[in-house]
Design a protein around this nucleic acid. Structure first.
Lengths: 158, 158
DNA sequence: GCAAATTAGTATACTGGATTACAATATACG
DNA sequence: CGTATATTGTAATCCAGTATACTAATTTGC
């Protein structure tokens, strides 16, 4: 902080990187969601729902909601609502934990098997579009950079 | 697409890049919002509100809501709600358009002048944290890559 | 063993996106 | 003109995220 007294106009002009970079993440996030949901619309799954579903799907033995919340870094309250909708749609089921009566274990139903090809195709098409014109090495570097930013912001490392 | 009939497990395994990259944008977006809002909380401005406010601030002559929606690529309806809150907070004012009775022109009030130093500091601190350990050239390259992705997804070029 | 602290999940309130539908006004055109 | 079409802004509804507070059940610790 070397600034003695900066004018408002000076401050306005100094924020170029912040203005550009910050909203790129915001915009790409929104555009990605839109691109994916357009392709998978007939299944009625939003991107967030799919994210949760993928994590549920990877652990056949079932997980508690708290474990899911930790893995996705989504708070338990909104996670519960997303699970409600997934359950309504028949994508998951919840069963009481055998030894902890507070907890409920979340499982993927067989519905995911049926629609996985469609969902995988939607995801692949979305990223083929997103990454068009980039070499594989560039993609790898980009991922590494983004993971660094995420760590810098205090995010978990996956 | 060379796949004849892929198993569900094969499909599950193939989506590594999609799984990693897609949610990095999602996570960074959330973490950025949180980092900024923690720093600027006492002003009561959220990141989205600040985004809109910056755009309003750059055109002293006032803009219609439709122009603002085009510039930020936010739909008119949600934009209107954000403007409502900014107006409630005294950050902007809306006046009827002189020649088009449907339209209202949006102006920044003088409140922004008073708090710009604080907001600029919050933005700069947030990005100093986010980009720590990166060289200037890397930041420039990253921005270029992200702009390419945004274009690929059909976003405007700024 | 029993009270206190912790944990699992839900409820509620608020912000902010998209989408759809709509009233009021402007504009274009036959 | 006068009617059809565009556009401006708003309302209502939905999904998703944050934060806070709460109930019920489980551990912990004395």
């Amino acid at each position: 902080m070397t600034n003695g007294a900066r004018s408002v106009d000076e401050l306005r002009g100094e924020l170029e990187v912040e203005r550009t970079l910050g909203w790129l993440f915001f915009d790409i996030h929104r555009l990605l969601a839109k691109a994916f949901e357009t392709r998978s619309k007939e299944l009625g799954l939003t991107r967030s729902q799919w994210r949760i579903l993928c994590v549920v799907d990877r652990v056949p033995g079932g997980q508690t909601q708290t474990q899911l919340a930790d893995m996705t870094e989504i708070e338990k309250a909104p996670l519960g609502k997303i699970l409600d909708r997934l359950e309504d749609g028949g994508w998951i089921s919840r069963k009481g934990h055998p030894s902890d009566r507070r907890a409920r274990l979340v499982y993927a139903t067989s519905k995911i098997e049926k629609y996985m090809p469609e969902l995988a195709a939607a995801a692949k098409a979305t990223f083929a579009q997103t990454l068009q014109g980039m070499r594989q090495g560039e993609v790898k570097d980009l991922i590494a950079q983004l993971q660094r930013l995420k760590r810098n912001l205090g995010g978990a490392d996956e």
